[in-house]
Structures are given as C-alpha cells and as structure tokens.
Amino acid sequence: MPHPTQSFVRNCLLSVIDAAGYAAIGPHLEPVDLPKGTVLIEAGKPFTHAHFLNTGIGSIVVSTADSRRVEVGIFGREGLSGFGCLLGVDQCPQTTLVQVEGEGYRVAVDALRTACQQSASLRETLLRYVHVFISQTSYTALSNANQSVEGRLARWLLMCHDRVTGDDIALTHEFLSIMLAVQRPSVTTALHMIEGYGFIKARRGHITIKDREALIDFADGMYGVPEAEYRRLIGPFG
C-alpha cells in the first residue's frame, strides 16, 4: 500500500508540519482501522506504536488495583497516542483506548523518535501538543474539583464534539460513567437535566448536540482555554 501524501491525511499534527517533517515521518505511517474498545497503550507495558487519528476519539484512563477508573484526557484528529515516547520514557501507568471508532495511522516508536531527530518541525509540533494535552488534563482536574456532574458532562461533550464530524456522538452510559467517575444512575440524571434544558438530545448509545453555545455557557469557563492554546500554538482542529 502506498504511503499517504500529506494532503490526504486528516490528522492536524501531520497536516501542519513542513514538507521535510512529513518526509521524515510519512514513510513510516501504517493505515489502521480503530474499532471501539481497541487498546492502543496498555498500562505498565512498553510502548510499541504511536497512533495519529484521522477520525474517532481516543481516551486515556487511569485505574486502581481495585478497578476504580476515571478518564483523564481525550484526543482525536488533533493529536496522537503514546506521546510519552517523545519524552524519553518507555511506558506509562495509564491505558489508552478507542472510545469512538475511527481510523488513522500507527508508527513504530523507534521510527517516530528517529523522525523527530531528523525534523525540527515535527519534533517541535509534537512537543507543543504535549504541552496542550497537559493543559487539557489540568482543566480536567479543575473541572472535577469544582463542577457538578452536569457541568463536567457539558465540558466533556464539547470536547467530544470538537473531535467528530457533525453533531452526533456515539457514547454509552458505561463510558460516560468512567469519564465522570460516577455511577451510571448519576450519568442518566445528568443527561436528563442537560437534555431538559434543550442543549442535547440523548438516545441509547448516541448524544446529539443541539445548542453548542448554550452548552459552552453551561460549562462555566471550564471549556475553551486548552482549545485556544492548541489554536495558538498549532492551528485549527481541522
């Protein structure tokens, strides 16, 4: 299969690097389908590949020995998985999995590191993304500490909306409960409340965004800063 040209890829990081940077990474990109639930990185296991998504949403989840879990960050076509390999580490304590199916490219860790050594554009762009992701996780901590379940859900729905095409998001109550670190009945209550305000339409396995601006207002300042930082340092989401 021929390697994808830069004009063909939909991943924002691969789109914004210069031609020399893409020439360094492009030959190592392997197209992959990413079904829902695919584990991209297993906690405590060595990194083998990084993944650049074109579509879909990845989720980074931390868990305890007694199976308590919470999502700490998400990424889609604006980012990549496994960026810890860029920081000189070989594994991490979080699991990365696909929460909304999609497709993209994978690249072996050693090939990615070599490409970054060859291209300042690629290296600097990916490290800027690491900075933005840290900003996202800091706002997740802020939201978890200060917002109601409904406010946290509003922020997270906006983040997912940024990473899909259209207004429909395929999400289950089970995964929403992991994201919010609450029981499923609390997820149902939060969805009903936000739906009652007219911001969303919820049905089994799907949520449709109906009034994005109202949802931003409801998120009460917890959404938007990391997203603006991405646009400032890297570019639009796509």
Results as ranks from 00 to 15, higher is better:
2 P>K: 13
5 T>N: 13
6 Q>A: 09
9 V>K: 05
15 S>Q: 13
18 D>T: 01
19 A>P: 06
20 A>I: 00
25 I>L: 15
26 G>Y: 04
28 H>P: 09
35 P>K: 11
36 K>M: 12
37 G>K: 06
39 V>Q: 02
44 G>K: 06
47 F>C: 00
57 I>K: 08
57 I>V: 15
61 V>Q: 10
64 T>H: 11
65 A>C: 07
67 S>I: 06
67 S>P: 00
69 R>F: 01
71 E>F: 03
72 V>R: 03
76 G>Q: 08
79 G>M: 02
80 L>I: 07
80 L>R: 05
83 F>G: 14
89 V>Q: 08
90 D>N: 14
91 Q>N: 11
99 Q>A: 13
100 V>A: 05
102 G>M: 00
106 R>D: 03
111 A>W: 00
113 R>A: 12
116 C>H: 11
119 S>G: 05
119 S>D: 04
124 E>G: 06
129 Y>G: 07
130 V>T: 15
152 R>L: 06
154 A>G: 09
155 R>P: 10
157 L>V: 04
163 R>M: 09
169 I>L: 14
169 I>F: 10
169 I>P: 10
172 T>C: 12
173 H>K: 14
174 E>S: 13
177 S>G: 08
180 L>S: 13
181 A>Q: 14
183 Q>R: 14
184 R>D: 13
188 T>H: 12
195 E>V: 02
204 R>G: 05
206 H>F: 08
207 I>S: 01
210 K>R: 14
210 K>S: 06
212 R>I: 13
215 L>P: 10
215 L>D: 07
218 F>Q: 09
218 F>S: 07
219 A>S: 15
221 G>E: 11
224 G>M: 01
235 G>Y: 02
